[in-house]
Amino acid sequence: MRQFTAVVNPTAGGSAGAAALLGVARLLRAAGAELETAYSSSLAHARRLARDAGEDGRVVLAVGGDGMAGAVGGALSGTGAVLGLVPAGRGNDFARALGLPADPAALARVLLESAPRAVDTVEVTSAVHDRTVVLGSVYAGVDALANLHANNARLLRGAASYYAGGLRAVASWRPARFRLTVDGTEHTHGGYSVVAANSGYYGSGRLVAPGARVDDGLLDVVVIGEAPKRLFFTLMNELATGRHVQRPQVTVLRGKEIRIEADRDVPYGADGEVDAALPVTARVLPGALRVLG
């Protein structure tokens, strides 16, 4: 029987982190599993808790949103320890990419019975931010600005906060000139944003990279180029289904390593939490993490 340590972000979605764990914890314990709970005071603290639990041979449950999943999963990347997810944030996009069920009973069965699968992680480095490892995506441009607005939203939650953040970001955005180096080949694009995606989803269920797979050893690089702002709002709506990649304003590249630079000060983010400025390099770490799901 598996032994679990749940690392909880008590602020994810308000009190949703602790609340989401309660139902799952009851079912895990009823099945005979041992479960201990550790509350994190920060993402750095969550990483330390995760590494300690993983070194003890315990399955580490990341309870929270994509920031918590990325922090805990990044800490376990390359260690051989096993990650489980209890989604309790605004986006839960990596859990969505894994196909995890929302029903507590079904999720408990996954955590108790499924065999760990190897998935890729993403190493992120820049001159102004320490090296970190995340799970979902690295995004630069209007996406990062929109995510910053969403994180600061006080009255809106979930997809609504991301949509409102996107509207605010686009309204003030000036197109940038991006220089991308993908596996040594340089590409230049002007426009709104660049997303280096391990998971196909970001921004609370938006299918930004329909072809991305978490276990293919590659990043899908989606570039949203220059377009009238009214068309960009249409593109935002098409992110729900992935139809935006059929537009001529959207370019999709694939590679193992991408460096993103710009001709002016442009923000980037990763897994909803890392906020810094370009340039940044994202490199896939194939099969570096064992996860239940």
Rank of each mutant, 00 (worst) to 15 (best):
S193Q: 14
L219W: 03
G191D: 00
G217L: 12
N198M: 01
F178A: 08
G211W: 03
N147R: 06
A164Q: 13
L167P: 10
G190W: 03
T188G: 06
T188V: 12
L231I: 12
G205F: 04
R157C: 09
T188E: 08
G200R: 03
L180Y: 03
Y202N: 10
A150Y: 04
V170A: 15
A196L: 09
G225K: 09
A212P: 11
G217E: 11
A150I: 12
G225R: 07
R154W: 07
V221S: 03
R168T: 12
F178E: 04
H189T: 04
W173P: 01
P210G: 00
E186Q: 07
D143K: 06
D215S: 09
P228E: 08
N198F: 03
A159R: 15
R230M: 12
V208R: 02
G211H: 11
L156E: 11
W173F: 10
G217V: 07
N147P: 04
L180Q: 00
S172V: 08
V195K: 00
V195L: 05
G158Q: 15
E186A: 12
R206K: 14
T185S: 09
S199I: 09
G205M: 04
L155M: 15
L167V: 13
D220L: 13
L180F: 02
G166H: 02
V194Q: 05
L155T: 15
V222I: 14
R179S: 11
G165M: 10
A160C: 12
G225E: 08
G211L: 11
R206H: 08
A144T: 01
T181Y: 07
R154T: 11
N147C: 14
E186N: 08
D216Y: 00
N151R: 14
G200M: 01
P175D: 09
V214I: 15
N152A: 11
D220K: 05
A159P: 15
